[in-house]
């Protein structure tokens, strides 16, 4: 028997706000689930598998994800799992469950209250705990080291970075102008180069078989892959993203993409990703405004997949890419190809 075809059939996200909701996320998730399930035309009891992504360090508490299960209404009991990663990887786990024939439908969700702590400082704890984290290099400084390397290598310019910010803001309807004369937050990154801290959540519904065909709108998942690079910032060439390139190759990223939703929390990272993925000028990048206009930690990657699927489901695109990243300086990357029609030659 060949592997089942899997489609995105529902998506919803909470508004990205500078500070909103409880630390537990439960109250934020309830309406997001309702909306995503309505979009998919499913009742929650028709979900075979639930999978989530979040981080204890965002909440400052061990087992913080446990509470969020309350939002599901998990009684009678459910089949469920959790990754301590962006929920894009929870999506991957759920997708594999369906491929394995262990489920036909899955709801994937991510959540996190980034504003509960000092996010850029909290993220320093992702770095090597022996020789790097004790120096508390914050996430913006780490991204700046990458941006500097890309500037020095002539791969990006501050103007090109500003153009990414301006396009993103225009797409998201953010009126605040991009200012190349603004002071640096962490040289060479200015405010417009950095994703704002925001709270949020997102949910994605995927299905195979008749469930995938039942709803009115679907985006077929025709390729998914993810890879991770070494972390050592001085071990890597920070101007390349080998894990993104390898994931794109493994996922069979087509060269006739219409749209790409790239998870790039910093402007230079979008430029590095476009190069790593070989995305030409024809590809519309981040019509949502991207993570630069809303980067709710642990759901923003999943949301890229949901938003790319929206492009396909609405008929605005035939082929779309949803991308997610995790870790410092684009260390880990996931590629999801979404299409209006399943191609004949499935690998």
């Amino acid at each position: 028997m060949s592997a089942p075809r899997v489609a995105v059939i529902g998506f919803a996200q909470a508004p990205c706000l500078p500070s909103a909701g409880t630390t537990s996320g439960v109250e934020t998730l309830v309406p997001v689930f309702r909306e995503a399930l309505a979009d998919a035309g499913l009742d929650r009891r028709q979900v075979d598998f639930w999978c989530s992504g979040s981080s204890d360090y965002l909440a400052g508490r061990a087992f913080s994800f446990v509470n969020a299960v309350d939002a599901i209404g998990a009684y009678p009991p459910i089949a469920e799992s959790h990754v301590e990663m962006d929920a894009a990887w929870a999506f991957y786990e759920a997708y594999v469950k369906i491929l394995a024939g262990e489920a036909e439908t899955a709801l994937v969700y991510g959540f996190g209250k980034s504003s509960a702590g000092r996010l850029r400082r909290v993220l320093a704890l992702q770095l090597d705990p022996y020789v790097v984290a004790p120096l508390w290099p914050d996430s913006v400084s780490v991204a700046a080291l990458q941006a500097r390397a890309a500037l020095d290598a002539g791969i990006v310019t501050e103007r090109a970075m500003a153009e990414v910010a301006a396009r993103s803001r225009a797409d998201a309807g953010v009126s605040e102008p991009v200012d190349l004369a603004a002071p640096y937050i962490a040289d060479p990154l200015r405010r417009h180069d950095c994703a704002p801290v925001c709270d949020g959540a997102a949910a994605l519904v995927i299905a195979s078989g008749e469930r995938a065909l039942a709803g009115p709108r679907r985006a077929w998942i025709t390729g998914v892959a993810h890879r991770i690079d070494v972390q050592g910032l001085g071990e890597r060439d920070l101007t390349t993203v080998p894990s993104a390139t390898a994931a794109a190759s493994a996922a069979g990223l087509p060269d006739d993409l219409d749209v790409a939703e790239l998870h790039a929390p910093f402007t230079h990272q979008e430029l590095l990703l476009r190069a790593a993925l070989g995305l030409g000028d024809r590809v519309r990048i981040n019509p949502s405004g991207g993570a630069l206009c809303g980067n709710p930690m642990f759901s923003a990657g999943l949301a890229r997949i949901g938003l790319a699927a929206e492009q396909v489901r609405s008929g605005r695109a035939r082929r779309a890419l949803g991308h997610a990243t995790s870790g410092p300086a684009l260390q880990q990357n996931l590629i999801c190809v979404l299409e209006a029609d399943v191609r004949e030659a499935e690998s």
């Binding site: 981080s55 204890d56 360090y57 994800f65 799992s81 959790h82 990754v83 301590e84 990663m85 990887w89 991957y92 786990e93 909290v122 993220l123 704890l125 992702q126 770095l127 090597d128 705990p129 790097v132 984290a133 892959a225 993810h226 890879r227 991770i228 690079d229 070494v230 972390q231 050592g232 071990e235 080998p242 894990s243 390898a246 995790s326 870790g327 410092p328 260390q331 880990q332």
Partner: peptide
């Protein structure tokens, strides 16, 4: 350590491969 699999990726042989972290 927040998501220690990130810094461990190399030592546990995950670099260049897919890596999932379950909790």
């Amino acid at each position: 350590v927040m998501m220690p699999e990130l810094f461990l990726a190399d030592a546990i042989g995950a670099a260049g491969r897919p890596l999932l972290r379950v909790h």
